[in-house]
Structure formats: structure tokens, C-alpha cells
Simulated assay, not measured.
Amino acid sequence: MNFFDSNCQEPPRDDELFGICDDQNGTKAYTNIDDNTKWVATVVNRKKVELVFTAIDACVIKSNEHEGRGRCDGMLTSEEHIFFVELKDQNASWRTLAINQLESTVRFFLEKNGLMQYRHKKAFACNKQRPHFQEIDQEEQMRWFRTYGVRLDVQAEVIVV
């Protein structure tokens, strides 16, 4: 499992605004600038940081690999940033599933790679049907940060700082 497999990466982009999409049909997630109706997550990149999107589900980790263990849809990386992103388009029971998929992916990542080189480390649970920030249990936030050194957000806007 190579989280930096060039076959799963898109060319770097530095757009100030773009979307991350998942067609919910078993194909890999992708970025888009043309059709915001497809966006599940919106990336706000005012500093125009050069970001690489890597499709994790259905690419880095194939559908038939590690059955029973979740994986998030993708990640955005730069020299200073690593953002794990899970995309949902549903109303009920999505949050716990999304967070579990993110946590499983972070554990997969840490088995092969380190996070020390990244200054900004976040995991985003994004839902097209519930785009606004949702409060996360402070204990869960602390557990994530203590365990992985990663901050957890439940919102459909990925803000690059």
C-alpha cells in the first residue's frame, strides 16, 4: 500500500477554490473546478498552496483489499499539509461511519509513513447534505490529537492555512 502512488494522484493544483467529488458508484474520488453541484467537499485555498489529491479508496487501497476495514476517499498533501478526507452524501448515521473510516485510514498511513514532516494535519468528515460545521465531542478531539497528532473536523469546507 503506497499512499504516494503516482497512479492514484492528480497533478498538483493551486486553485483558490475547488471541489472534491465522489460519484458514489465505486469509482475513485477526484477534484473538480467546473461543476460545484458535484462537490461533496469544498477546498478553500486562498494562499494558493500547491496541493496534490490522492485517491485512497478504490486506488491506494483497492475495494477487495483489507475487507472489513474502512478507508477514506482521499487525501490532500503539500510539503506542509496532509488532509485526510471522507466524503458522504447521506442523511442518517453518516458521521460515526465517516470518522471510523478516517481513523482506519490514518492508522493504515502510520503503519507505512510518518506525519512529523507535516505542519498541518487534519481529518475531514464531509457530507454534501450537511455541509456546515458540526460540533465534535471534545474528548474525541483530544483522543485523536493525542493518539495520532491529527485534528478532526466534521464539515464540508477544507480550509488550507
Results as ranks from 00 to 15, higher is better:
Thr27Gln: 08
Asn36Asp: 15
Asp23Pro: 00
Val154Gln: 03
Arg146His: 11
Arg146Tyr: 13
Asp153Ser: 01
Leu97Asp: 14
Arg143Phe: 14
Ile61Ala: 00
Glu157Gly: 00
Asn25His: 05
Arg130Glu: 15
Thr54Cys: 01
His81Asp: 13
Ile136Thr: 13
Glu157Asn: 01
Gln138Trp: 11
Thr105Arg: 01
Lys112Glu: 15
Glu80Lys: 03
Gln155Arg: 08
Ile33Val: 13
Val161Arg: 00
Asp34Val: 09
Glu65Ala: 04
Ala92Lys: 10
Phe84Tyr: 12
Gly70Cys: 08
Glu103Leu: 03
Arg151Val: 12
Tyr148Ile: 06
Ala41Glu: 09
Asn7Ser: 11
Cys59Glu: 10
Gly114Cys: 09
Arg95Gly: 13
Leu110Lys: 10
Cys72Thr: 11
Ile82His: 01
Gly19His: 07
Val158Ser: 00
Arg95Phe: 14
Asp23Tyr: 09
Lys28Met: 12
Cys21Ser: 04
Leu17Asn: 06
Thr31Asp: 03
Ile61Ser: 01
Arg71Asp: 12
Thr147Ser: 01
Pro12Arg: 05
Asp5Glu: 08
Gln117Lys: 11
Val154Thr: 12
Gln101Asp: 06
Cys8Asp: 07
Lys121Glu: 06
Asp89Phe: 09
Asn127His: 10
Asp22Asn: 03
Ile20Asp: 05
Gly26Asn: 04
Arg71Ala: 12
Tyr148Leu: 03
Gln90Asp: 08
Tyr30Asn: 04
Glu111Lys: 04
Thr27Asp: 12
Asn127Asp: 13
Val154His: 07
Lys112Val: 15
Lys38Asp: 11
Gly114Ala: 12
Pro12Glu: 11
Ile20Gly: 01
Cys72Arg: 03
Cys21Val: 13
Ala156Thr: 13
Arg146Cys: 08
Glu50Gly: 02
Thr31Ser: 07
Pro131Val: 12
Asp137Gly: 01
Asp73Ala: 08
Asn127Tyr: 13
Ala125Leu: 09
Asn2Tyr: 04
Ser6Glu: 15
Phe84Asn: 05
Val150Tyr: 02
Lys128Phe: 08
Phe83Gly: 00
His81Ala: 03
Arg13Met: 12
Val158Ile: 14
Phe145Asn: 05
Arg146Gln: 12
Cys126Thr: 14
Glu50Lys: 05
Pro131Gln: 07
Met142Phe: 11
Val158Tyr: 06
Gln24His: 11
Ile20Val: 13
Lys62Asp: 10
Arg95Met: 15
Ile61His: 02
Ala125Thr: 14
Ile99Met: 07
His66Met: 13
Cys8Phe: 08
Glu103Ile: 10
Asp137Trp: 09
Ser93Glu: 15
Phe145Val: 10
Ser6His: 08
Phe145His: 07
Pro11Ile: 13
Ala98Ile: 14
Thr96Asp: 14
Ala125Met: 09
Ile61Gly: 00
Arg107Glu: 15
Glu139Gly: 05
Arg130Trp: 14
Lys48Ser: 12
Thr96Cys: 02
Val85Gly: 02
Val43Leu: 04
Val60Ile: 13
Asp57Ser: 02
Trp94Gln: 07
Glu50Pro: 00
Ala29Tyr: 01
Lys112Thr: 15
Ile20His: 03
Ser6Met: 06
Gln129Tyr: 09
Pro11Arg: 06
